[in-house]
């Protein structure tokens, strides 16, 4: 069990929680969405600057647990400079990784640092913490003006 907990709270996650990357309000953003996890009281704002088919810049702000904050931080680090097609693929892959069955080994090729979040699938209640930033980012790209909730 301690191994599962250590797997969940790896150094990389603790580091991104303590010093989140791209933690700011992005000036000149052209996409924005807010996400809520009412069960935890987590809230996140995601800002994107998209030019053509490319995410030129991405940032976030919010409050939440270590998992949600680290996931948002890692996401912004991974997505900066990516094409929208790659972003969509990564989102799907990430989603599969955190929601796969415990005994299943998901395809983590190309996920890079995001793979450190694979530990959440052992803790069903924390999957939403890891996914919140991604769903909010997706809503921002779709220009969804409504507040995104993990409970909808």
């Amino acid at each position: 069990m301690m191994d599962d907990l250590q797997e969940l709270y790896q150094e990389v996650i603790l580091d991104h929680n303590k010093s989140p990357r791209n933690y700011e309000v992005l000036a000149n953003h052209n996409h924005f969405a807010e996400g809520d996890n009412p069960l935890c009281g987590d809230h996140i704002d995601v800002y994107l600057k998209v030019e053509g088919n490319t995410i030129k810049d991405i940032a976030f702000q919010g409050k939440g647990c270590a998992i949600s904050k680290a996931s948002a931080s890692l996401m912004t680090s991974e997505l900066k400079g990516r094409s929208l097609t790659e972003t969509k693929e990564l989102f799907e892959k990430f989603h599969k990784m955190v929601t796969s069955e415990i005994d299943e080994t998901p395809d983590m090729d190309g996920l890079g640092k995001l793979a450190v979040l694979s530990g959440v699938k052992v803790f069903p209640l924390r999957i939403k913490c890891a996914s919140l930033a991604w769903h909010t980012m997706n809503a921002a790209l779709e220009n969804n003006k409504e507040l995104i909730s993990t409970e909808d």
């Binding site: 069990m1 301690m2 907990l5 969940l8 709270y9 935890c40 409050k63 939440g64 647990c65 270590a66 998992i67 803790f123 924390r126 913490c129």
Partner: peptide, 13 residues
Amino acid sequence: GIHPHDIGQFLDN
């Protein structure tokens, strides 16, 4: 600075 859900997860362990 420490979110209650992180605290709860460690205490559960």
